[in-house]
Design a binder for these strands. Structure first.
Lengths: 198, 198
DNA sequence: TGTACATCAGTGAACGCGCGTTCACTGATGTAC
DNA sequence: TGTACATCAGTGAACGCGCGTTCACTGATGTAC
């Protein structure tokens, strides 16, 4: 073999990583395969030795990133990180200013609607898993934990996107702060008796 | 004049309406000017008699839609519609299934980040106005009304997008229901004393 | 009144460009005999 | 051991296509004299 064992797998993963960053930074539609391959130190044609089509790449990138992020969450929880910390990190100025290494859902969810059913089904599974991870971290035993988990993730996704879209830095900070506080209040005040009120 | 008075204005508005629907349905980047002009019953070249560039169109469309929607909210409130009703309508299966006539924020917010500062500044102003409209409809006089308004809108935007992206209808309905219930609980339980807890 | 010209919304072909995709080819290595 | 062939990751030019944009032109009307 011209290349050492595992070389192709390494290249494959490098393409995934670079595409993941570019897709999150610039959107899926506006990133060409040529620019991905150039960043990976390869030429146009080599792409099809690794993926059937751009759509295949999109699906694989999405799965890869969401799995990586899930692993981070699980590791974090093992090491004692709280749901509160997850919320603060998600709604931090750093996350807002670094799309390329952040949550893909916030980065290009409105583009996902225009992708293949297969890609969206993968997204559905990974998203349900996030809902479950959050739900497991909510204190108490009321039946609203599932609803709360969904709402907290929705709130974070919407707020992060809004904070990124506005041009006014003060408004942007306000959005992050408001959403953090509301999310935290949702997990801390929603004990059994409060939930029963709703 | 070959055309009756006001003809050009009518054509201009028709282009805006058609572009607004297409952008919300398919995303801004993936809708070509040719398809917009064809739907408007015109040819390619006529576009530049109405707009300087695609970016100008995007900005004008965004302003037009957000003003139309704001007018609807104001009219609705005059006729006794409640914030609750606004939330239910926003998080309804109908809104989820009809991007083309719905909220542009949910339709293409993650694309907005890649547009001109001028377009995003317009978006910022209109979004702050929505925050204010919601805030004014929240009962009570506590200092958290502004935060709640921001959070409720963020929650709705995130939830609607997630409900559109997932392929599983049951998950989609769950998201809409969870977000509705949480949003409603936020405006009804957050009286002065509850807010003080946070 | 008739004629020449100005106006202007819209036409439609063409521009350069980047896109996703294809494909004949390269060249270093491993394998067979 | 030497030679012929197979393997395969990657090359790089080319494909048709649709994009945003430009521009010389059309043709019905209004205006000037």
């Amino acid at each position: 073999m011209r290349y050492k064992a595992g070389h192709k797998d390494e290249t494959h993963q490098r393409i995934l990583d670079i595409a993941g960053k570019l897709f999150r930074k610039n959107g899926i539609a506006s990133v060409g395969l040529a620019s991905i391959m150039k960043d990976a130190g390869l030429t146009n044609g080599a792409f099809y030795a690794h993926f059937d089509s751009k759509e295949t790449l999109v699906k694989e990138v999405l799965g890869d990133i969401l799995d990586q992020r899930d692993l981070q969450i699980v590791e974090g929880l093992k090491n004692g990180a709280s749901l509160k910390q997850f919320i603060y990190d998600y709604l931090s100025p750093f996350h807002r200013d670094h799309c390329e290494s952040g949550c893909p859902t916030s980065a290009f969810i409105s583009e996902l609607i225009h992708h293949s059913k297969s890609t969206r089904t993968l997204f559905t599974e990974k998203t349900v898993r996030i809902f479950d991870r959050i739900e497991q971290q909510i204190q108490g035993e009321n039946s609203y934990r599932a609803n709360l988990a969904i709402s907290i993730f929705s709130l974070m996704v919407g707020a992060l996107q809004l904070s990124r879209a506005v041009t006014d830095k003060i408004v942007s900070e306000k959005i992050l702060k408001a959403a953090s506080e509301t999310a935290i209040s949702l997990i801390s005040t929603m004990s059994d008796e409060d939930a029963a009120v709703n």
